[in-house]
Amino acid sequence: MQNRETEMSRRSFLGKTGGLAVLVVAGGVTTVFADSKQSEQIKKNPQAYDWSQHDYVYLVDTDKCIGCGSCVRACQKENHVPPHRFRTWVERYVVSHDGHTHIDSPDGARNGFPPVVSDYNVAKAFFVPKLCNHCTHTPCVQVCPVGASYRTKDGLILVDEKRCIGCGYCVQACPYGSRFIHPELHVASKCTLCYHRITKGMLPACVQSCPVQARMLGDRKKNGDKVAEIIATSKVVRVLKPELLTEPNCYYKNLSKEVY
């Protein structure tokens, strides 16, 4: 068993999944679409993606977010997300001096935020981008009766749309509200961290579109990865709802105590 896990390297992965012929076909696209070193390699050898060599982490810096909603719009286009459903969204927290917290997220911030006239003294206000936390011990995979939700070797939670029966248990089970039932396909749908992009060495659409670098993608298995370094060393990085022991792989920097 142990052997099988470690052996799941390039060769067996490709053999079993029939090879990544697409990347060859899309060669013309990758020249425009990809820039990093990894994608250079993939361009030369399209089968170079090895999922045992990656362990993705996501970091949000709430101090930087300006609430423009660029990420939500980009995600929507990149992943064909239906209207009024969200794979990522942005929440606005406005905290009054007497400790009341007002939270809003008009249409998930797809059109940014309108100015609000508050009738109270604002002590602080900030934005919190949200998305699937890609938990290590996730309830959404545990409750799936048909094996449609699963965790990949590079650390992401995906939903097999062909397998999903749309029962909605996982939507209920997710403590972060990251899943929804697709209104047309009638299957569970959620953030994939743009698996089709990151496996080509590109950034997820939300990270790519952020004008202020409030969203970052890291890789724990990459030497000298800056994001993984921040997560490992910073004292102001935490996860949402740590008490649930789901071990999210999405971290928040400078998160205010009002957010759970």
Binding site: V22, A26, V32, A74, E78, Y195, H196, L203
Partner: peptide
């Protein structure tokens, strides 16, 4: 999932 077409560039 890997085969899904890319929409945005870099």
């Amino acid at each position: 999932f890997m085969d899904t077409p890319v929409i945005h560039g870099d």
